[in-house]
Design a protein around this nucleic acid. Structure first.
Length: 106
DNA sequence: CAGCTGACAATAA
DNA sequence: GTTATTGCCAGCT
């Protein structure tokens, strides 16, 4: 495909914005949709640079293991947890998400 | 121009 | 089962 890195951000924003409510996507999962299976870090880095103006549900993007992203990202550790809980995401006793129930695949 | 960093993931010990 | 290390892509310094 023609534009790859040019619209990498846009591509990530689009995928993240397509995550349905009550579901979560892994960084590596999104990277895989983009065609970059090893671009897990790049996806996360794109989120960090993603402006709030996009209203991207970054809280729906978590690690492949089901762990939430580092707390310092949202400012407080319970922010993402509360958001996902409000969305209908179920957490395990470890505080990780049930990827088997909420793992979203494009 | 070259090297480093960063919201990860997978493999090895 | 847990911990440590390496690999990946794109943007910055």
């Amino acid at each position: 495909m023609p534009d790859n890195r040019e619209g990498f951000f846009k591509r990530v924003y689009e995928i993240v914005g397509r995550i349905p409510e009550g579901k979560v996507a892994a960084y590596g999962g999104i990277a895989r949709m983009l065609g970059c299976p090893g671009g897990a870090r790049t996806v996360g880095w794109a989120m960090r640079s993603a402006p709030e103006d996009m209203k991207l549900p970054c809280h729906r993007v978590v690690k492949a293991t089901g762990e939430l992203s580092p707390s310092h990202v949202f400012g407080d550790p319970e922010i993402q947890r509360a958001m996902l809980e409000a969305e209908g995401i179920t957490f395990r006793a470890d505080g990780t998400i049930d990827m088997e129930r909420h793992l979203w695949q494009g």
